[in-house]
Structure formats: structure tokens, C-alpha cells
Amino acid sequence: MNLQTLLHPSAPAEIAPDGEACPALTVENLSAGYPGNREAMTGVSFAVRRGERVGVLGPNGAGKSTLFKTIVGLIPHHTGHISIHGEDCRTSHNMVGYVPQHEAIDWRFPVSVRDVVMMGRLRQIGWFRWAGRRDWLAVDDVLDRVGMLPFRDRQIGQLSGGQKRRVFIARALAQETDVLLLDEPFSGVDAAAESEIMDMLDLLRREQVSVILATHDMHMAGQAFDRLLLINRTVIAYGPPREVFTPDTLSRAYGGRIGVFRDSGQTIIITDEHGCPGHDREEE
């Protein structure tokens, strides 16, 4: 984590004002939902610059997972627009890498760690072709970047929770994407795995990969992100942590479920939210 960016977060990105490159991800006036809750979120707009790390915060059921699933196309959106480097997400070849909070996966499935990561390269390989030497090298390269190369021949179910998480992040990176959505990557992993994932995120920032990460961890949110997106069915606030963490915005997002105290320059936030696995189920 670069201290400079922490202390001086630059101004919020506007949508390509004067010849500057398009934002990595632009979401405009997005409304989406699923059967049973068609209006899970409405009027969501924000833009994420290249290499930026954005934390998505909000109470349980605020629509964090819905937002992510809509961006990657798991939930169709009827109104609004999502673009990746300026191209519409439905036609773009730049696919967003996505690591869900709960993988619906049979961990006994006969695949090795390398096989799982290779799945991310499906589109790079193309129809009617088999993975070649270049693809295996690319897979080993991303496994090395997430520190999982020594485990590449293990069956996927033989890994710990944090290791599995890193393999799925590697799989998203193998898509050769520079926009990564991580839905609560820290839920259900121990402190060691958390710091390993955090190191990996720092590496990704140096590689100019934009990371959008949902979290419940207020402490981390205040420190580890360039900008925070506070949502509760719509955007409550979007900006650097010190602008987002105000008593007003927090109480608008969390209602009565949060307490904010200011004491001689220190802000204390008390929340009853906890990110234990299975707690943030918004559907299924």
C-alpha cells in the first residue's frame, strides 16, 4: 500500500473529460434485480480508473453481490449501461474477472489447481482448440503471482480456504483482464490468508489492475482503498474514505445499525455487521 495514495487520494474520476483514457469500468444509471426482487438496486453510477482499488461497503442485503453479478452478466440488467474501457460489457472482449463470495463448486471434482486456472483462459484459447504451451506458461505465471505455483498439481479440494480463494483470483487473472471484482474475499479466511491476499492486491495495483472489492471490514475499508463505494440499493456515497466515512452517509447507508462517534479528531465507527460466510446471502 502506497502511503502517498492513502493520504492524498486524487480527485474522483469523471467520465473521460479531456482526452484522458476511458475509465477501466463505468457503470451508469444501473438498475437490476432478480425474480422475487426485481428492484434490488436502482440508479447506480460510478467509474473506476485503471489501477484503482475501490471498496464496496453496505449493510447485508444492500445489493453488493447483486451489483457484482450484474456487472459480470450473471444477472441481466434492463436499464443502465456498463462499459469496460469504454466498450459495452455485453459486446466487449475485455471480460471482467470475477471471484464470487461462495463458489457453487463440488470440491471433490477431479481437477488440479492448474486445470482450474486454465479455465480462465477458455476464451483466449478459442473454440475447437486445446491449451498449448503458451497457455500453460501463462497459467504458471499467474499461479506464481498469487504464490500458488508450488501447489499447481494439487487437486482443488486439497487446499485451505485462503489457498482456494487465491486460486480463484488467479483464474480471474488468467482471463488477461485488468478489471477484477472480488466479492468478500476475506470472509471465511484466517488472518494469515488475509495478509497474503492483501499482498497480492498490492502487486495487482503495481500492475495497474483495477480491483473492486466488497467487504464488511470497516477498519480495512478505511485504510486499504483509494475510494469507497457505499451502497444501500443505490449509491449513498462514492469517494475517498475520509469523505465517505461521515456520520451522515454512514447512518444513511446503515440506518440504526451503526454508531459513529467523533472524539478529538478520531472517528469511531461501531457496527453490528459481520462478514461471516453465508451471512450476506442476498439470493439463492
Binding site: 459480470v72 452478466g73 450473471l74 471480460m95 471482467v96 470475477y98 464470487p100 463458489e103 457453487a104 463448486i105 463440488d106 471434482f109 481437477v111 486445470d115 482450474v116 486454465m118 479455465m119 480462465g120 477458455l122 476464451r123 484459447i125 473454440w127 475447437f128 486445446w130 491449451a131 483464474r171 482471463q175
Partner: peptide, 22 residues
């Protein structure tokens, strides 16, 4: 043989198959 890798992705993780627009 022709669709092995697609069948593998679809069988292992249908969600990924959808995000990859299979």
C-alpha cells in the same frame, strides 16, 4: 474431444461459463 474444455468449465463451474459468455 472437440468441446472438452468447454464441457469441463460448464461441469465444474456453471457460473464461470456464464461470465465467459459460453
Amino acid at each position: 474431444l472437440l468441446f472438452y474444455k468447454e464441457f469441463l468449465v460448464l461441469s465444474f463451474d456453471a457460473g464461470l461459463a456464464r461470465t465467459l459468455k459460453l
